[in-house]
Design a protein around this nucleic acid. Sequence first.
DNA 1: CTTCATATTATGTCTAGACATAATGACGCA
DNA 2: TGCGTCATTATGTCTAGACATAATATGAAG
Lengths: 232, 232
Amino acid sequence: MNPARRIRDEIAASIQSGAWRPGHRIPTEQELAARYGCARGTVSKALSELAASGLIERRRKAGSFVAHPPVHSAVMTVPDLAELIAARGEAYRWQALAIERLTGGDDGFARPALAIEGVHFAADEPFAFEQRRIALGEVADAADADFEAQAPGTWLLAHIPWTEGRHVIRAVTPTRKEARLLGIGPSTACLELDRTTWRAGGVVTHVRQLFRGDRFDLVAEFRSGLESARPS
Amino acid sequence: MNPARRIRDEIAASIQSGAWRPGHRIPTEQELAARYGCARGTVSKALSELAASGLIERRRKAGSFVAHPPVHSAVMTVPDLAELIAARGEAYRWQALAIERLTGGDDGFARPALAIEGVHFAADEPFAFEQRRIALGEVADAADADFEAQAPGTWLLAHIPWTEGRHVIRAVTPTRKEARLLGIGPSTACLELDRTTWRAGGVVTHVRQLFRGDRFDLVAEFRSGLESARPS
DNA sequence: CTTCATATTATGTCTAGACATAATGACGCA
DNA sequence: TGCGTCATTATGTCTAGACATAATATGAAG
């Protein structure tokens, strides 16, 4: 086994088993190097990984300590809806309801913008209702895309990779119009997902998706560091 | 600026700006070392960080490539409810409704177990309804804890750090009993959060929390790698 | 033309040593 | 007692070189 990996795993095990409580001071790099019979650089690499994964904290001169607040961060993968539905083995379809070019007005979103409304279908039943804005100043190509044929999320994913963003998730009761579009009763709970996406500089798109509560869950996992941050 | 950091940031910028599309081959470590006038180890470290953050993929002999599917993973921090409410500047209170020791029966959860039901209050109004199981085989101390005085989540967070787990989030309509406990109408949408938590070996606890849809959102952020996986 | 062995190559990991940096703690002075 | 200074110390980063490993590319044999 790699010395670096071995050191990393043994320290991680000591922490996760509870043998080393939060705040416990880890031996210095020199001590560990002597104990494992390897160079300090190797120990340093192992500790760096543990620090990156949040398991320990390192302070110059002071040493390395078992990290202290185990705030649970969960990783939620947000796949493209077309993929998600295909993965379920259901047929996917997108239907645009309205596509409009906004030049004036003010809703807090940049202008010019494209405003798109539509419904995602799974197995020919409504699955989610989507309202979207795309900033044409950031994504000029979007003006030429055919959003009747392709859902804007799918198009954006292929054309504007590597963005940052923020989701807000809530439970809401649909409006009468939304309930009709989703083919559900007016008191069926829906999951609302508000996503703002940006790329160095400006907001690229904002989308509000309303999911039928009875056909959709979100799954998020948390783990104590190690393995890559981004499980493919 | 650190050479390593500089290399890392310049490559990340090339990717995020779209100049290097997914699949693009990154110069070899040797070429980069020569271009930046540093040792190969330094380049390797920079590329390792980019790979860990998911921005690139590295393959022996083949080289390093801009990673290809930018599946959006969002990081959701799941704070303790007591902390969350305190952070809002509201008074927090926990009220236990039932605490029971389960030895027989079978609901798919280990035995013996502690079954706890209660309500979380914010500013003296019901905020969330909680149903929990704790595996006494994994957490023997829990038998002596006072869950009338302290919410089980708070106690567990302090006593059982470093766990892994899984959330399932949905929108639901509350049952009549739940609506009454939360002080809402029977058709107010609620956010349901199902969390299973485990630690090397066994499931530690399972909790189902039902939030008033009008008083709670979940926030999740995604970003293209870099900064630590676990923002404190 | 296919198949298998081999050479090449880029990454993966490690070493031993160097200097930088930041924070602690001790010492001395007011 | 209180405060500023300075040496100490542990981590942070880097280097130049070495060997390991895996996968591609090449070439020889069938």
